[in-house]
Amino acid sequence: MISIRICGAAVRVHFSFLVFNALIFLMRSSGLVLSFYAVCLLHEAGHLTALRHTGGSISTVDVSGAGIVIGTQKGGRVTDKSRLYVLLAGPAANILLYVLLSICGYHGSFAQLNLIAAVYNMLPYRSLDGGAIISLLSLGTVRERAVMHILTAVKLFMIVLSAAAVYYCGREAFPLLAAAIALFTGDITRSP
Rank of each mutant, 00 (worst) to 15 (best):
S3T: 15
R5P: 02
I6K: 11
V11F: 05
V13W: 07
H14E: 15
H14K: 11
F15N: 08
S16P: 05
F17I: 03
F20A: 10
N21F: 11
I24P: 01
F25H: 13
V33Q: 10
Y37F: 15
A38F: 05
H43V: 04
H43R: 07
A45M: 14
G46P: 06
T49D: 00
A50S: 11
R52Q: 07
R52W: 08
T54G: 01
G65H: 06
I68C: 13
I70T: 13
G76E: 04
G76Y: 08
T79M: 10
R83H: 14
L84S: 08
L84T: 08
L87F: 10
L88G: 04
A92R: 01
A93K: 06
L97T: 09
L101P: 08
S102F: 07
C104Q: 13
H107P: 01
F110L: 15
N114G: 04
A117C: 03
A117K: 00
L123F: 15
Y125Q: 04
S127W: 02
G130D: 07
G131N: 02
L139W: 03
T141N: 02
R145L: 01
A146P: 01
V147G: 01
M148D: 04
M148A: 12
V160L: 11
A163T: 09
V166R: 05
P175W: 12
D187A: 00
I188P: 00
R190I: 04
